[in-house]
Every structure is written in structure tokens, then in C-alpha cells.
């Protein structure tokens, strides 16, 4: 485990905590895309199929459990919690899951490291994670007025992706046989999707003004 990987995992964890904090303490999920959260729940459910079959480390297992539990509980809050669900911007969050899920599934059937159920599901989860943020970005664009916690949530997710890229570069030069094209390309695509958001996030931070995306 290198410093980039650990920092990446920690920013990922922080993004989830920020989101849960917002939902749990303010009892609001305004500005958060349920579509994106459902896609993340699906991402973790399909990626961590190995959780009970391959033991890697205690850290690995605990983090997997945290991501699974948090993603499903966020979805539960947004759909079922009697106060939180009222703040959900249903009319603005109109992205169709299937437009993302189907192409990713098809792509995973053709491009994968090995044609087995677990491998195809793992590849599918990588492709889906790359694009799962899209409904959230569309929602941000539509609502424009972004509260601090939502802005921080998306920023932390983007930071996590950027740190993972540094982690891959580091591992490529320090570990033999560390070549994972599928992971790298989907990870790169995922990070690039944040570029536009980052640009406005840093500008608002630099000028000390509230984050607003252009129409």
C-alpha cells in the first residue's frame, strides 16, 4: 500500500462520510442524485463479489463492507426515510440508469481479462463506476446553486480518482507485472469527467465565492 492509494481510499471514505453527514444531520439530500447513488450501490455489489471468497487483508475486507453498507444506506435514506426523501429533487434527477448500465454491461462482455461471471461483473463495475457520476453532474448543472456539502462531496470523489491514478503510476514503476489496462482506462475516463467541475470548484475557492456552475 502506497501513500497515494491510502490517500485515495481516505478521500473516498471522506466523501461517503460527508454525504451521510449531510443526510443524517441536516435530514436533507437536496442536490444529491439518487440515480448516481443507486449506480454506486450496483458498482460495489458487482465489484465486491469476491468479498467472501478471496481474502486480501483485513483493511480490504473492512473497506469493502463500509462501501457496501454506506452506499446501500444512502439509497435507503433517499428512497425510504420519511423526512430525507422529501428533499430529493426528483423532477430534476431524470437521468436513465439503463442508458449507462446496458452499454457498460455489453462492453464488459466483450472486453474483460477473463470470460467468467466474476471477471465480467468486476469489469462491468469498473466501467459503470467511470460513468456513474454523470447523473450527479447533470443534477448539479441543473440546480446550479450548490450547497457546500454537495460541492465537497463531488470534490472528494474527484480527488479520490486523481489519487488512484497517481497510485497506478507509482505501482507501475515499483511492482513487477503491474499492468491493468481496463482499470486504468476506465479510471482515466472517470477522472476526466470531473475536470469541468474541478475548474469551477477551484475558481470559486480561489475567489472565495459560492460555487455556481454556468447554465
Amino acid at each position: 500500500m502506497n501513500i497515494f492509494r491510502l490517500a485515495g481510499d481516505m478521500t473516498h471514505l471522506m466523501s461517503v462520510i460527508v454525504l451521510l453527514l449531510k443526510i443524517h444531520t441536516i435530514k436533507s439530500c437536496a442536490g444529491i442524485s439518487l440515480k448516481t447513488q443507486e449506480l454506486y450501490a450496483l458498482v460495489f455489489a458487482t465489484r465486491y463479489l469476491d468479498i467472501f471468497t478471496d481474502f486480501i487483508s483485513l483493511y480490504n475486507t473492512i473497506m469493502k463492507l463500509i462501501f457496501l453498507a454506506s452506499s446501500f444506506s444512502i439509497v435507503w435514506y433517499m428512497r425510504q426515510h420519511k423526512i430525507v426523501r422529501r428533499s430529493y429533487d426528483k423532477d430534476q434527477d431524470t437521468f436513465r440508469h439503463l442508458f449507462l448500465i446496458l452499454p457498460c454491461l455489453l462492453l464488459a462482455l466483450f472486453i474483460n481479462e477473463k470470460f467468467t461471471f466474476k471477471e465480467v461483473m468486476w469489469t462491468f463495475s469498473l466501467f459503470l463506476e467511470a460513468v456513474a457520476i454523470l447523473p450527479q453532474l447533470v443534477l448539479l448543472q441543473r440546480t446550479r446553486n450548490i450547497d457546500n456539502l454537495t460541492g465537497q462531496y463531488v470534490f472528494l470523489l474527484g480527488a479520490y480518482r486523481a489519487l488512484y491514478i497517481l497510485n497506478w503510476i507509482y505501482r507501475y514503476f515499483t511492482e513487477p507485472h503491474y499492468v491493468h489496462w481496463i482499470t486504468w482506462i476506465s479510471g482515466l475516463v472517470q477522472t476526466l469527467l470531473y475536470a469541468d467541475f474541478f475548474y469551477y470548484y477551484f475558481n470559486s475557492w480561489k475567489n472565495n465565492v459560492k460555487l455556481q456552475l454556468p447554465a
Binding site: 481510499d9 473516498h12 478471496d54 486480501i56 480490504n60 507485472h177
Partner: peptide, 10 residues
């Protein structure tokens, strides 16, 4: 040589 290492990333 094992090219098929376990996936240790999250």
C-alpha cells in the same frame, strides 16, 4: 509467474 494477481484495490 502469476499474472493473475488478486485484485487488491477497492
Amino acid at each position: 509467474e502469476c499474472f493473475y494477481e488478486p485484485k487488491d484495490e477497492l
